[in-house]
Simulated scan of single mutants.
Amino acid sequence: MTAEATTKYDELPQLLNRSISGETAIITGGASGMGRATAHLFASEGAKVVIADLGADRVQKVVDEINTRFGAELALGAECDVADLDQLRKVVESAATWSGRIDIVVNNAGMGRPNALTQPEDEFTEAWDRVLAVNLSSQAQLVRLALPYLLKSDAARVVNIASTEAIVAQSGLVSYAASKTGVAGLTRGLAVELGRQGVTVNCICPGPIDTPMTKGHPDEAKEIYARRRVPLRRYGIPEEVAQMTLNLCLPSASYVNGAVIPVDGGMTIRHT
């Protein structure tokens, strides 16, 4: 047996480790939808979670849910507009002070606005700038701010949440499609840059998911859309996206880097 093979077998227990217990994760957009589901799942696995989102009451509600259900001191709230660099910096500082470590960053916060080239200039520019700031720029900034702590972790993980709008697109949402496509590109760039330092960076592209963002769509319309477009013939639920996020954050996922993974019931592979 070669020395290289021996080394790999010596490392096997770590490579097979499927626990994030004791690790600390920052989850943006953690007060609802996929972010909330991810925070609950991580806490159920013994991780400490920092819930970063708009609205102090919304954030505190999720913190209380987690600390009541899974054990005190597993969740910390951080009210934050992710488009504000100073507020992002405070989230990282609070997480580091509270836990002493940051092992995982889940860039989940996102938004959409109607945005078409035919809009008046001020309306178009306002929507474009805000959507890209929230959906794309904030992800790069948070990873930058958390990087000194991630580099100290034995299994540093970054998961960026994009959308199937990074793969396909619909009319009237140009800033949303551009931002989500940018997240996929950002993921690949960071994966190459940070991989050599032991930090993996991956991307999830959720398809139609029942979240507050889709709550305004009539149930009948969602049912028709799912039957026509999704091979599984239904919308997904936030917990299904959270499970993929967890899988990418496990120590055993150490060789998954730069992946862009649809969680869409097969929507983006359907030709007709």
Rank of each mutant, 00 (worst) to 15 (best):
3 A>M: 14
7 T>K: 08
11 E>W: 01
12 L>Q: 14
16 L>S: 13
16 L>M: 15
19 S>W: 15
19 S>E: 14
20 I>D: 04
21 S>R: 15
23 E>D: 02
23 E>M: 03
23 E>K: 00
26 I>L: 02
26 I>T: 04
27 I>S: 01
27 I>W: 04
31 A>Y: 01
32 S>W: 05
32 S>I: 03
34 M>T: 08
34 M>G: 05
37 A>Q: 07
48 K>E: 06
53 D>S: 15
61 K>Y: 07
61 K>G: 00
61 K>N: 09
62 V>Y: 02
62 V>H: 04
66 I>L: 02
68 T>P: 04
71 G>T: 10
72 A>L: 13
73 E>K: 14
75 A>R: 00
75 A>V: 04
80 C>H: 06
88 L>G: 00
88 L>E: 03
90 K>T: 13
95 A>L: 10
102 I>D: 07
104 I>T: 06
106 V>Q: 01
107 N>S: 10
108 N>E: 09
109 A>K: 01
111 M>N: 04
111 M>C: 08
112 G>V: 05
115 N>T: 14
117 L>C: 10
118 T>D: 13
122 D>S: 14
125 T>P: 06
126 E>M: 10
126 E>D: 15
131 V>Y: 05
131 V>C: 07
133 A>G: 15
136 L>N: 07
137 S>M: 07
141 Q>C: 08
143 V>W: 05
144 R>Q: 15
144 R>Y: 11
149 Y>M: 13
151 L>M: 14
152 K>H: 11
153 S>F: 03
155 A>I: 00
159 V>M: 04
161 I>K: 06
162 A>P: 04
165 E>I: 02
165 E>Q: 14
166 A>G: 05
167 I>L: 15
175 S>F: 02
176 Y>Q: 06
177 A>R: 07
180 K>L: 09
188 R>G: 04
190 L>Q: 08
191 A>I: 03
192 V>N: 13
192 V>G: 09
197 Q>T: 00
197 Q>V: 10
200 T>Y: 00
201 V>L: 06
202 N>I: 09
206 P>R: 03
207 G>W: 02
213 M>P: 08
213 M>A: 12
215 K>M: 15
216 G>W: 12
217 H>S: 11
219 D>V: 12
220 E>L: 09
220 E>Y: 05
224 I>T: 12
225 Y>P: 01
228 R>T: 14
230 V>M: 02
231 P>E: 10
231 P>D: 07
232 L>P: 06
236 G>L: 01
244 M>T: 11
248 L>G: 09
251 P>L: 05
251 P>A: 11
259 A>Y: 01
260 V>K: 03
263 V>Y: 10
266 G>C: 08
268 T>I: 13
269 I>D: 13
270 R>S: 06
